[in-house]
């Protein structure tokens, strides 16, 4: 047995394991559907990174956050009172 036979054995281990699954197949389908919804739909359309999408550099992001926390009370009130603002 050479070292080159290990990748083939590992591949067969996984291939045979997947082939022998019963309830596992349903679970894998569920996992893939879930991951697709999370990463291809939710992350892309609903959860863009707030600071990354608005600013190009870390310095700009730090500047924005500093602005937010030094205008503290005003910013906090705005958030508290933004009832259904669109």
């Amino acid at each position: 047995m050479t070292i080159w036979s290990y990748p083939i054995r590992i591949f067969r281990f996984y291939r045979d394991g997947f082939a022998a699954m019963t309830v596992g197949r349903t679970l894998w389908k569920l996992i893939f559907i879930k991951l697709f919804i999370m990463f291809a739909v939710l992350k892309v359309f609903f959860f863009p990174d707030f600071l990354t999408t608005r600013f190009d550099t870390d310095e700009q992001r730090a500047g924005y956050v500093l602005e937010q926390i030094t205008n503290g009370a005003a910013n906090q009130d705005e958030r508290r009172n933004s009832h259904g603002r669109d």
Binding site: L42, F50, L51, T52
Partner: peptide
Amino acid sequence: IILEFQFGTNWSNYSWM
């Protein structure tokens, strides 16, 4: 992982800090 999505989107000040 969804919690981590929320950190970046809804809690960006906190996330940055």
